[in-house]
Design a binder for these strands. Structure first.
Lengths: 206, 206
DNA sequence: TAGTAATCCTAGTAATTACTTGGATATACT
DNA sequence: AGTATATCCAAGTAATTACTAGGATTACTA
């Protein structure tokens, strides 16, 4: 299992043509991950799906893990962008409805990425090869920016470090779970309502 | 990647000698998983570490995933057994201290499995090959028995389905995260205290 | 103690897969 | 137009790895 230890793309595409193959490769990798899982994703298959030669893949990425890392990066960007858009509309809401609306928006953003998020959460190994070491070391906290963004709006007063850690962790992991592994016999909407009730108790106190 | 789709051991060991190799293989697999990660765990390496021939492994397991599944199963059994022992002492505690004590016990049980738990959580792919399909379909809820056990003692009144789902999910995922990926700059004990405060608010109401 | 079944091991094989080589083709630049 | 450079690809290779065949050894049984 000879693996490259570089993480970044070998070189950045300069011409428009190569930018297209670069993107096609990332898009193809996304598709293959969704349909075949991490273990079933081979570099040859990615290149085939993208419609380019295998060597082109290695022109831009040092190895399989690098391109998968890029796919994750792109997904994170999409989620954050979407959330920023959606969260903008929450400003006018009254305090009582804010928490639930906020949680719903996060849920929907995650839901849009469901098939990919599922593979990333359950199959892609969490290792230095895949995630840059300077990044947030917790996969669950990849979305922490997203939360800090919303948290400013939602949280009434400054929370302790421990409280903040728990809030971020709970919200992200609960909603991710709900998306990736919906509990049979439970309605997602109802779970979110229940969660927002509890979170309101949490942040506003008894 | 030819994989067997059976899950159970091919045959159960009948003589004492084979029971020993059976256990040695599982123990070896545990060690190799801890030291080399899931991807770096090969069947040959497992057999070597166990001190038996590779064919002996295939005598008792249809493939790599089957033995890994068995390792997970054994870990779950250990955790549940330990918790049952520890939880027994909680009966006399007053209501106010019960929640925190309960969370601490779960935390410690998980902490004892830290190296293995880390690999299982982050690297072992979550697939039908690894987890029996008749088992709880959520990995996080593998420990749900554990929680229901404690919950009877801790929860004051019957909770709604949604509430129960969230409580189980939150407790397990929070404590697992805390064990597997301790947040830098935060004290685990302090986080547990904070969590138990909030959980008390949730279940006892405002 | 002989026969039979269980257990084990050595030495493979076949298939997969990450990755490279060397040259062809397209693009940019002057 | 002509040259340099960027981009692409077909056809490999070398290493890994899951898994097996066939026979040797050990333990039960009568």
């Amino acid at each position: 299992m000879p693996q490259a230890f570089e993480l970044q793309a070998k070189k950045l595409p300069k011409q428009a043509r190569s930018k297209a193959t670069f993107d096609a490769l990332i898009e193809a990798c996304t598709l293959v991950l969704q349909s075949h899982g991490y273990a079933g994703t081979t570099t040859n298959h990615i290149a085939d799906t993208a419609g380019v030669g295998i060597a082109s893949l290695y022109e831009y990425f040092p190895g399989k893990d690098a391109i998968v890392a890029k796919v994750i990066e792109r997904m994170n960007e999409r989620v954050l962008t979407n959330l920023a858009k959606r969260a903008f509309n929450l400003r006018e809401l009254p305090k009582e409805e804010l928490m639930q609306a906020w949680l719903e928006q996060i849920y929907r953003c995650l839901l849009e990425e469901q098939p990919l998020l599922r593979v990333i959460s359950y199959e892609v190994p969490y290792s230095e090869q895949v995630l840059n070491s300077h990044e947030m070391p917790q996969r669950l906290l990849q979305f922490s920016e997203l939360l800090e963004y919303g948290a400013m709006e939602v949280l009434p007063q400054k929370q302790s470090k421990e409280s903040m850690y728990l809030i971020v962790n709970l919200v992200v992991s609960s909603l991710t779970q709900l998306v990736v592994n919906p509990p049979p016999g439970l309605d997602a909407q109802a779970v979110i309502e229940e969660l927002s009730k509890k979170m309101n108790q949490w942040v506003f106190g008894p």
